[in-house]
Each structure stands twice: as structure tokens, then as C-alpha cells.
Write a protein that binds this DNA or RNA. Structure first.
Lengths: 144, 144
DNA sequence: ATAATAAAGGATAAATTTGTCCGAATATAA
DNA sequence: TTATATTCGGACAAATTTATCCTTTATTAT
């Protein structure tokens, strides 16, 4: 569904959100350890998220990554996915056709439209605040 | 959503289905031309589909690929996807976690479950016979 | 039988994605 | 001001996916 980079990006964002809720800034090292991702690769992804204003980064000692508390419920999964994987989920054809559209549909166009719409709705209605709360009470997990 | 190989596999299967409906066997060359796919790569994919008894292949002059007419409505998209991409769509975690389950869920587990179930339902209820009929009446397309 | 045709299969190459390494830039604290 | 901690950014490496090429095998028609 998503690229590995996007999976790491979502997991990292959820972890950062949980810590930001407690006003804690977290380092790359922490993040990679907590979500079980390769550190250097994760760094690249965090850079992308930072450039897209999804997370904030601070250099130097006691630096790290964080998300403004008031943004926590505003950041949706869709923002992260768009920043990392682009809009392929939004506009791509299920069979990889470039010209697939309502006017010139592929054979599975209508079936995929239903799926795509439910994916988009889900991505746009799920925010980091909600996702991080399950971590806090131990009902959800980010590693393994 | 699917690998390129799987996309080509589905497109090829739909084309073969359409021709098989007219009792016509089709060659690799034909298929690649009609679905706009790289020939040699398509050959590999057709081999896989053939080994999985999704399509039949015949060597030699006037050989090619076909699907038994009585199988046309029995072959579902799910069969093709499973043969080429495996069951990652069926069992994989949306965030790439190995151990994600009802007992140990990732933060988006429930949201993804809904999506996954609708994908599975769609794949298991869509057959080649239906998909190829749109090609015949010119309402759907397999190229570009 | 022989030649021609078409898929099968193995080896290899190109492209993309995933992942690593290291020096530069920046901020903090002593 | 200096040493240290941390992200940034570019270059590189490994792994995977996509794609090609060429020889072998099977089948058909002559």
C-alpha cells in the first residue's frame, strides 16, 4: 500500500506526536530505536517531513524533533502520505494505466474507485493525536 | 497497491479472457502489444500465471495463451494477485510491522482492517468474465 | 524427418527503492 | 570561545523490482 519510507514516516510521526503531547522533544536515535527503523534512512524521511512542515526539527544539543501541540489533531495521515509517497494513491490507476479516467476507464476502474475513496477518507480523517493516544495507554504498538 | 508485475498480469489475464471468450488463443506478442507491456517481462508473468493454473499455455506454431471458457467466470482477481504478489495484501500490516495482529495491533490497525476487508471482498468477487465484457463493447480499455 | 513457430527458462542488465557513511552546518552548554 | 550534541545534505552501497537477451524445449505444418 505504502512505501517502506512512508511506513517509517507514519510510525515516526506517531511516536513524535506521543512525546510532543508530553512536551518532549525526541532525537533521531530515540525515534529509530522506538519504531525499529534504520537510523540513517529514518533521518532522510524526517528531513522530508520537516521540509513539509509536518514536524519541526531543532539542531544542536537537546535538539531533535517535535510537533506543536496545537497541530497534533490537525496533522492527518494524508499529509504524511502525500509528503512521502506523493499523490499516487489519490490519482493512480489500479492497473497502472496513465490515461485511466471516468471517460477512459480501465476494466477495474469502478471497483477501484470505491476502494480508493475509502482509503482517502480514512487518511483524511485520521489524525496524529488520536493515533498516539493508543500508544500511551499501551493498547497499540509501533515496533516489530 | 499492486506491483507492476501484478498490474501486467491482471491486464494480460483480462485480455486473454476476452479472446478466449471468442475461442481465440493469443500469443505473447499480441498480449504485450494489446496491453502495452514489455514483452519479455510479460512472458515471465504469464509463466507464473500458467504455473498457477490461471491461464493455459500451448507451445509451438499456433500456440499461445488461453483460458478455458468454463473457467472464465471462476477466475477472480484474487487468484491473480495471490499468484503474483502473494498474500501481503491479505495479511500485511499497513505500517509494515511483522507482529501486528488483533492482540498486538499497530496504531492504524482498525482503520486498515476496514480497507483491507473491502479490498479482499472486491478481489474475491470480481471475475475475468465480467472484466472482459467491458473491453468487448468498448467501454473499458487496457492500454496507456 | 525437417523447418518453422512459440513458450520456457536461465543469465544478465537497468532502474528504483532502501539503506549507509561521513563531513558540514547549527545550536547548546560549559 | 570552545567542545559537544544534533540535524542536514551529498555521495555512495545494497537490495529489490523491473526489464532484456538468448538458448532450449515442445508443437505444428510441410
Amino acid at each position: 500500500m505504502f512505501s517502506k519510507a512512508c511506513e517509517y514516516g507514519i510510525r515516526a510521526s506517531i511516536y513524535i506526536a506521543g512525546q510532543s503531547h508530553k512536551d518532549k522533544r525526541v532525537s533521531l536515535k530515540d525515534i529509530a530505536k522506538e519504531i525499529g527503523s534504520p537510523e540513517a534512512f529514518t533521518a532522510k524521511i524526517l528531513q522530508q517531513l520537516s521540509k513539509n512542515n509536518i514536524i519541526d526539527s531543532v539542531k544542536g544539543p537537546s535538539g531533535g524533533f517535535q510537533i506543536e501541540q496545537k497541530k497534533l489533531h490537525k496533522v492527518k495521515l494524508s499529509h504524511i502520505v502525500l509528503a512521502i509517497d506523493g499523490d499516487s494513491i489519490y490519482k493512480g490507476c489500479g492497473l497502472g494505466l496513465k490515461e485511466c479516467s471516468e471517460k477512459v476507464p480501465c476494466p477495474v476502474h469502478n471497483q477501484f474507485k470505491v476502494i480508493r475513496n475509502s482509503i482517502i477518507t480514512m487518511l483524511e480523517s485520521t489524525n496524529l493525536s488520536d493515533l498516539s493516544s493508543g500508544l500511551k495507554d499501551g493498547s497499540t504498538f509501533l515496533k516489530m
